[in-house]
């Protein structure tokens, strides 16, 4: 590998490497961490609002549940929704941008005008309304077919899809711009000249050249979706109790803040876990962008 390779350049960026390591750590902790905690810590107990102790390093909440376990399992849901939601938005954004950029002309300007309009609409507000309207439907639909797995996770499924639907705009713009630039390159002209179908040109010639950009925006969309999910959960419309995500934990913590008894552990630990994850994702995304930027080659 020479110095121009993006992986090498990423490896030389200490912030990005640290961020990637931190992310792996957080993911491993949320997946495997709960297995090491005593199963009783998930159950409500009489020990309400205990400050951090040796038995409960992060303290306990109103119902005497262990906050460490709640932060870890909440992180599981936040990360799951973030990752899957980002994949959905990736699919929509890439296809939309590819089609707009490849079609060009009127179709392109019409499609991009829609993106412009959606940009200045408070999308989350409509998603709030939609989730509320459709989640009961999905639940009925799933239980009518005996899909028990979907009944229990219908709320999460609907969160993933609705958040994927709102976070694709930036990616669509970027992919469209790149497609426009790639379209005029010789290898695309050659493919057209050889009489290859649109499908082959789009998937075989254009898409592979866009993978770098898509990877960058995947790392930047995951935190955006995590934030959106927590926003909804914070307001009580996302993940429903007793399940928790970082957003709903923070809502509990913020609700318990009062000048008489400072229950700081209910705020600091969920906020800390979430902040670390979001910062790591954004710093990694930024590092990736620098590493894959051809203008930085050879630096």
């Amino acid at each position: 590998m020479d110095d121009r390779s993006p992986t090498r350049r990423l490896g030389k960026n200490p912030v990005a490497v640290a961020a990637a390591a931190l992310l792996l750590l957080v993911a491993a902790a949320t997946i495997f961490g709960p297995l090491f905690l005593p199963p009783s810590s998930a159950e409500p107990s009489a020990l309400s609002f205990s400050p951090p102790t040796l038995a409960h390093p992060f303290g306990t909440d109103l119902n005497g549940r262990d906050v460490l376990l709640r932060v870890l399992t909440g992180g599981r849901i936040s990360l799951l929704v973030g990752f899957c939601g980002a994949l959905v938005s990736l699919f929509i954004g890439t296809s939309y941008g590819l089609i707009a950029g490849y079609a060009g002309g009127r179709i392109d300007s019409f499609m991009m005008r829609i993106v412009d309009i959606l940009y200045s609409v408070p999308r989350l507000i409509f998603i709030l309304i939609c989730i509320n309207a459709f989640s009961a439907y999905l639940q009925e639909f799933a239980s009518a077919r005996g899909w028990t797995w979907l009944v229990s996770s219908s709320r999460i499924a609907i969160l993933i899809f609705s958040l994927g639907i709102i976070e694709w705009l930036t990616l669509a713009r970027i992919v469209r711009g790149q497609t426009l630039a790639l379209k005029s390159r010789a290898f695309v002209t050659a493919a057209v000249g050889l009489g290859q179908s649109h499908r082959v040109i789009l998937l075989r010639h254009l898409l592979p050249n866009l993978l770098g950009v898509i990877l960058i925006y995947l790392t930047l969309t995951i935190p955006a979706v995590i934030i959106d999910e927590s926003f909804l959960s914070f307001l009580g419309v996302g993940v429903q109790a007793p399940a928790a995500s970082w957003g709903s934990l923070l809502a509990d913590g913020a609700g318990a803040l009062n000048p008489v008894r400072i229950r700081w552990w209910l705020v600091v630990y969920p906020a800390g876990a979430m902040a670390l994850t979001l910062l790591a994702l954004n710093f990694l995304g930024d590092g990736l962008r620098d590493a894959l930027d051809p203008r930085n080659a050879g630096k």
């Binding site: 923070l250 809502a251 000048p259 700081w264 705020v267 906020a271 902040a275």
Partner: peptide, 21 residues
């Protein structure tokens, strides 16, 4: 980059904790 990464429901409660409480 840090401020962009952190949403209001992290910044808000932390600000309350530090500056108010």
């Amino acid at each position: 980059l840090s401020a962009i990464s952190l949403p209001a429901f992290i910044i808000g409660p932390i600000l309350i904790l530090v500056f108010s409480l």
